[in-house]
């Protein structure tokens, strides 16, 4: 063990306590992703209704800016967050499952000898 490893360890343990469970952050980001996607779609729909409701070109431009562009950006960012964190979870479960099956397969092969 290196010099200073215990001090590093002590700091890391302290950080664990203050940062709390990591799973929670992940769940929160996943929820944030879903919210952003919904907000984006809502903005786009509102923008569309506003554009249809007026013949003034300047008002239509403003509606496109909030509804079309901002809505689109929010939806894309939301979708990225959502995918990142839902797939992360899925991949972890999948890896654990693979390892598990791999092991029971080995056990079966050994037992069948």
């Amino acid at each position: 063990m290196n010099e200073g490893r215990v001090e590093e360890f002590t700091r890391e343990i302290a950080a664990l306590k203050t940062s709390g469970a990591k799973g929670d952050t992940e769940k929160r980001l996943l929820a944030l992703g879903s919210l952003l996607m919904i907000a984006g779609v809502v903005l786009a729909v509102i923008g569309g209704v506003q554009v249809a409701g007026t013949t003034n070109a300047a008002d239509q431009m403003a509606a496109i800016a909030t509804g079309g562009l901002l809505g689109l950006v929010l939806a894309v960012v939301g979708a990225a967050l959502f995918l990142r964190y839902s797939i992360g979870r899925f991949m972890r479960f999948w890896a654990i499952r693979l390892i598990h099956e791999h092991r029971s397969e080995t056990d079966r092969v050994i037992a069948g000898k």
């Binding site: 490893r5 360890f9 002590t10 343990i13 302290a14 664990l16 306590k17 469970a21 990591k22 799973g23």
Partner: peptide, 19 residues
């Protein structure tokens, strides 16, 4: 208690990651 700090309830994976 680990390294003189109360870690009751901290999950095993987090403890394993730091050593």
């Amino acid at each position: 208690h680990i390294a003189a700090q109360d870690v009751t309830g901290v999950p095993a994976n987090a403890l394993a990651r730091v050593g």
